[in-house]
């Protein structure tokens, strides 16, 4: 089951660049939340702060609190533990090229010491089914490399890999931006089905996509969260002039 995310006073820097300023935000459990905004507005940095990937860059710095359920992720636990509970799907499909499809899905569990083969088989199948990839790859599970399938399939493989460790939250950083429209539709379909079980945060440049999959939408601009509201409200009757300018395309 998914959990909600509570963000307070979040500030982030890359070197001396202040990329996120005083973000306050409550992301509801078991819903899809979309984050939109122009390039460089901080939305990617924001999701990377939610699973502490931001700090893997040596020049990055972050302050403030992020709570996943009751867990204060910057004070209570190590980043490694947090990343197991918060899965991430990146902009470009990044399967492990030297691993088979099966090994890719099993990697998260195996690399954390999980060895039960029978249980692994079941988890791999279930994860691939959830990612709507099972039927396409079930005959080549161990024979084909994760890098040998198409881009859209690779991205669903990465989703399956993230689901296999059974996270509570799924962060997606422009998951469909490198894919063609058919693959994109499949990913959106997937998000639609997955959100009953996971809390989903999706960064997107595609506003129609945000409107299609998300109940809530946040608009970022210059490192600030300008507006956060129900998706229908954001797209039909935004309260902030800047949001309106952006979604109507008047934005410079």
């Amino acid at each position: 089951m998914g959990v909600g995310i509570e963000v307070k006073d979040l500030n982030a820097w890359y070197g001396s660049t202040h990329t996120l300023r005083d973000i306050h935000l409550n992301i509801p459990a078991n819903h899809a939340t979309a984050l939109i905004g122009p390039s460089g507005c901080g939305k990617s940095t924001f999701v990377r702060c939610l699973n502490r990937m931001h700090e893997t860059n040596p020049i990055a710095r972050v302050t403030g609190t992020v709570k996943i359920g009751d867990l204060d992720i910057y004070n209570d636990v190590s980043p490694v533990v947090i990343r197991r509970r918060i899965g991430m799907v990146f902009q470009r499909p990044n399967p492990f090229p030297t691993m088979s499809i099966y090994d890719n899905v099993a990697s998260g569990l195996r690399l954390n010491g999980f060895r039960n083969r029978q249980a692994l088989d079941e988890i791999v199948e279930r994860s691939l089914r959830r990612a709507a990839l099972w039927d396409e790859v079930k005959d080549d599970l161990r024979r084909k490399s994760g890098a040998s399938i198409s881009g859209g399939q690779q991205q669903r493989l990465c989703i399956a890999r993230a689901l296999a460790v059974d996270p509570e939250v799924l962060l997606m950083d422009e998951p469909a931006s490198a894919l063609d429209p058919i693959s994109t539709a499949k990913i959106e379909d997937l998000i639609f089905h997955l959100k009953s079980e996971y809390t989903i945060v999706i960064v997107t440049h595609n506003m129609q996509q945000a409107a299609r999959v998300a109940e809530k939408t946040g608009f970022f601009l210059n490192g600030q969260l300008v507006e956060f509201d129900a998706t229908t409200k954001i797209f039909t009757n935004p309260s902030d002039k800047r949001t309106e300018d952006y979604i109507t395309g008047r934005f410079g």
Binding site: T56, I82, R83, R84, G87, F90, L111, A162
Partner: peptide, 15 residues
Amino acid sequence: AVREAALGLGVPNWR
């Protein structure tokens, strides 16, 4: 991207 994928799965850095 491959390193990030591993870290994103909650795999410790050395592993």
